[in-house]
Write a protein that binds this DNA or RNA. Structure first.
Length: 592
RNA sequence: GGGGCGGUAGCUCAAUUGGUUUAGAGUACCGGCCUGUCACGCCGGUGGUUGCGGGUUCGAGUCCCGUCCGCCUCGCCA
């Protein structure tokens, strides 16, 4: 085939016996028996055992070879004796009797072993990522990512979408995360920004008359990392459609996600149409706008039912305008005191006060921290929420807090009691987000999500309704408690745009200044349009069943946004800085 | 920026309450032996600023303070 190899390391079988072929790859393991030498040669495709007979020139060369050397071996394919076959290897029925070997690349002593399953510290893995990626799991994850992205592209194209590229060097946009900035040499003192998302570009493409846009889009946001959030950069399946309403977007994305999740996993995937929840409904039933529907627990508002209670904890909450939220859990009555104390500690760790509870053990009196303070009728009602042997957990306080803590408690109890349904991907839409929210400290009205979303009710709603009551055509798609994407039907009407921004405190001039390109475009005939942008890394993470996003990124950065392999970020030369008219002014206590 | 956990041979880990440990083991590496292994085996050897700096103590891998790095998390993520 060429001078290095004829076939890859996975292909040779009993049918090839007698052929003389070349294979090339890495020394996975070498077993030197003193005379005969065995080498497992590994490449991307598989592994083949090469045998070196004592006294041959090839054996002499290979004697000094070590793990991860790169060899090309020419040899004769021979069948192994019955007793010497290796059933763990696809090529285990044969071996390559070496006639000739060429060393293509030597290896220093390895900083980490490749041919091992043992855990290796992430620092070492990231510093020597090229070695790490040779290992089975990391290698497989990156290939899976490639296949998923191919599949996404194919599915989008088949649905009539066209793929576009949009600028990487663009301008800083207000709102949102901190930008990554790139200094301009031609315009000293001015900066490009890397796009946080191609949001405005894709909307401009709609105005340009392209009805179905998509892109596997790199997005750059200078925000801190999480297990499911890589710092700096990530990828979205960015898509946008013209002349559509919310349901049209839902239908397309359900098709694509159901397809890709079914293609790449054996789990049960929610059949389209995915459940639709309003934001308000999701918050009240699950205490979260990204509910994990695999947990069969729901939050119930029992404020009214216990409004006459003497129980001090509830009394205090209700009298100061708060609420009492309850989660009924079957079979929980037999749990130890320690279990419930643990739940209280958990909620305290989240910033709450604690968890009250009442239990209904079968054939016994109700017990639990709240039991003796509740009236007969109150207990009767609560008992009806669960079955004998069950119990009810309570969180009380100001509504916003009670809702949030109840949501966290729901997840914690679900997880501790192994109630999370395994082997499924449960999707849902969260729609009807509020257009605005009040800043917690200042009370100022600000956009709660994307400022480019169309307010429900249009201009009329903006002019006549309390801003905090206005909903937007704004939606999220959630899978197993992970937010995959936000999206919206966009506001394509300049007059509605100006009004929407005015409510959030931006003048017409500011809007013109900050979104010049887009607002101008909308004045020259813009179609109604909308879309969303599921996070590719998170999709791959779920399909690879990895708990950490770095496992599906070939060259990830650390939580502190450093690339340990490429040594980024790094200082640059004074010449480079001079050319950009930049003076570095790092405070002394931050120098390292 | 706050909180939590961690950092001991190249790698993965151990080391009782602060003390007979010359800081050990496996693996890797080096040397010797071995012609059918597939985690080859056997014998021997090299390899340590216990992240770094300071402190307490007769004595610190172990306790205290600071600092750096890694992970998780809160803030942050239109």
């Amino acid at each position: 085939m060429n001078r290095y190899l004829d076939v890859d390391c996975s292909k040779l079988t009993i049918a090839d016996v007698g052929r003389t072929v070349r294979i090339a790859g890495w020394v996975h393991k070498k077993r030197d028996m003193g005379g005969i030498i065995f080498i497992d040669l590994r490449d991307h495709y598989g592994m083949t055992q090469a045998v070196f007979a004592p006294g041959t020139e090839a054996a002499e060369i290979v004697e000094s070879a070590r793990s991860e050397w790169v060899l090309s071996v020419r040899g004769e394919v021979v069948a192994r004796d019955e007793a010497n076959r290796n059933p763990n290897l696809s090529t285990g029925d044969i071996e390559l009797k070496a006639l000739e070997v060429e060393v293509l690349g030597k290896s220093d002593v390895l900083p980490m072993q490749v041919a091992t399953d043992e855990d290796i510290s992430e620092t070492v893995r990231l510093k020597y990522r090229f070695l790490d990626l040779r290992r089975t799991n990391p290698h497989r994850n990156i290939i899976l990512r490639s296949q998923i992205i191919s599949s996404l592209r194919r599915r989008m194209t088949e649905l009539g979408f066209h793929e576009f590229q949009t600028p990487i060097l663009t301008s800083s946009s207000p709102e949102g995360a901190r930008d990554y900035l790139v200094p301009s040499r031609v315009h000293p003192g001015k900066f490009y920004a890397l796009p946080q998302a191609p949001q405005q570009f894709k909307q401009l493409l709609m105005v340009s008359g392209f009805p179905r846009y998509f892109q596997i889009a790199p997005c750059f946001r200078d925000e801190d990392a999480r297990a499911d959030r890589s710092p700096g950069e990530f990828y979205q399946l960015d898509m946008e459609m013209a002349f559509v309403e919310q349901e049209d977007v839902f239908e397309v994305i359900e098709n694509v996600l159901h397809g890709v999740y079914t293609e790449f996993s054996d789990r049960k995937v929610t059949e389209p149409p995915f459940p639709r929840l309003t934001y308000a409904e999701s918050m009240s039933r699950y205490g979260s706008d990204k509910p994990d529907l695999r947990i069969p627990l729901e939050i119930v508002d029992v404020t009214e039912q216990v409004s006459g209670t003497e129980f001090k904890v509830f009394r205090g909450a209700i009298d100061s305008g708060g609420v009492v939220r309850a989660i009924a859990v079957d079979g929980i009555a037999s749990r130890s005191r320690k279990f419930f104390d643990g739940l209280t500690s958990f909620i305290q760790g989240e910033g709450g006060k604690g968890v009250a509870y009442v239990l209904f053990p079968e054939g016994e009196e109700p017990k639990g921290s709240a039991a003796k303070f509740l009236s007969e009728s109150e207990l009767e009602f609560l008992a009806s929420m669960t079955s004998p042997g069950g119990g009810v957990l309570f969180l009380s306080g100001p509504e916003k807090e009670a809702v949030r803590f109840a949501g966290r408690l729901r997840e914690e109890v679900g997880s501790q009691l192994d109630m999370i349904e395994q082997g499924t991907f449960k999707f849902c839409w969260i729609a009807d987000y509020p257009m605005y929210e009040a800043d917690e400290e200042t009370g100022a009205i600000e956009f709660s999500h994307n400022p480019f979303s169309m307010p429900q009710g249009g201009l009329e709603a903006l002019e006549n309704k309390d801003p905090l009551d206005i909903l937007a055509y704004q939606y999220d798609i959630v899978c197993n408690g992970v937010e995959l994407s936000s999206g919206a039907i966009r506001n394509h009407r300049p007059e509605i745009m100006y009004k929407a921004f005015e409510i959030a405190g931006y003048s017409r001039e500011e809007v013109d200044e900050r979104f010049r390109g887009m607002i101008q475009a909308f004045k020259f005939g813009a179609p109604p349009h909308g879309g969303l942008a599921p996070g590719v890394d998170r999709i791959v993470m779920q399909l690879a069943d990895e708990p950490n996003i770095r496992e599906v990124i070939a060259f990830p950065m650390t939580a502190k946004a450093e690339d340990l392999l490429m040594n980024a970020p790094a200082p640059v030369t004074d010449v480079q800085l001079d050319e950009l008219c930049i003076n570095i002014n790092v405070p002394e206590d931050e120098q390292s």
